[in-house]
């Protein structure tokens, strides 16, 4: 399934897509596969994530708060290697969700953007989220992703100007990742009004689905975000549940969030 099809199916069910993040190889490669499967399975009542962000652990994750930083450090300490990413992606694809990779640019630069795109596609990956690659610097990635039919998911932020929203929207495919607040990843008490405003501004420039991330940590947040966005992205809160409660906790949390995105009353704002 492609990202486009996932968002279309969700729209037909009049709900937002649930997008979950965990780092690959956290705490080990095999355990991370179990956690990803749990995140997709849900709690037995409600299915979990429609789309899974497989994070590539990186030594210098400047967009991440302490939760994801320490999870990535742990994966690296346990010997995670980039080539193992593709095994994890294959496992996620087999579990029924659509996998996308989230990675800082340097490991991909090092691997070779074309080789990375080729191997990601072969593993069943649908696209790549690039937190530190803006369209102006993405020339090589535009080519590689075209060549290997992968979606390019760029970020927009509350500080993005109208010009930059338009530029980013036209360079991206699959969906746009709206960073709900100015800041790094990490669970927050509330989802700021700036998310709603950013989604509204971004819609003026694109037909692409818009996913909202940064700070979503409860079913209530998920329901709130689902009322105005096409995708609800949950990262750090999944990491915390995985650390504390393992697979069972991740299954339960995925089910809760799954109900969250199904109970929202969507504002049909073009999405």
């Amino acid at each position: 399934m492609s990202l486009q099809e996932v968002f279309r199916n969700c729209a037909e069910q009049r709900r937002s897509a649930l997008i979950g993040y965990l780092p690959a190889g956290f705490p080990t490669v095999s355990e991370s596969v179990g956690l990803f499967e749990a995140m997709v399975r849900g709690d037995g009542h409600t299915p979990g994530c429609d789309i899974v962000e497989v994070g590539l652990p990186y030594s210098d994750p400047v967009m991440d708060g302490s939760t994801i930083q320490s999870a990535a450090e742990r994966a690296l300490r346990n010997g995670f290697r980039v080539r193992q990413l593709f095994d994890v992606v294959s496992a996620v694809a087999a579990s029924g969700a659509v996998p996308v990779v989230m990675s800082y640019w340097n490991p991909i630069h090092r691997y070779g953007p074309d080789a990375f795109a080729r191997d990601l596609r072969a593993a069943g990956g649908a696209g790549l989220i690039t937190p530190d690659l803006v369209p102006e610097e993405a020339g090589e990635w535009m080519e590689a992703s075209e060549e290997h039919r992968l979606d390019r998911i760029f970020l927009v932020a509350p500080s993005s100007t109208e010009h930059r929203l338009a530029l980013t929207a036209s360079a991206g495919t699959g969906f746009l990742y709206a960073a709900s607040v100015m800041g790094v990843t990490g669970a927050r008490e509330s989802v700021s009004d700036s998310a709603r405003e950013l989604v509204r501004r971004t819609r003026a420039h694109t037909e692409l689905p818009i996913g909202v991330g940064l700070g979503v940590r409860t079913a209530e947040h998920a329901a709130e975000v689902a009322s105005f966005a096409d995708g609800v992205i949950v990262g750090s809160a999944f990491v915390t549940r995985a650390e504390r409660e393992g697979q069972d906790g991740v299954c339960a949390f995925a089910g809760e969030l799954g109900r969250g995105v199904r109970t929202a009353s969507p504002e049909p704002a073009g999405g």
Binding site: V62, M63, W105, P131, D132, L133, V134, E136, E137, F154, L155, V156, A157, P158, S159, S160, T161, R164, T168, A179, M182
Partner: peptide, 11 residues
């Protein structure tokens, strides 16, 4: 160049 998060490009 600018290999930076979008959130910082405006600054």
């Amino acid at each position: 160049g600018r290999f930076m998060p979008e959130a910082l490009i405006a600054a």
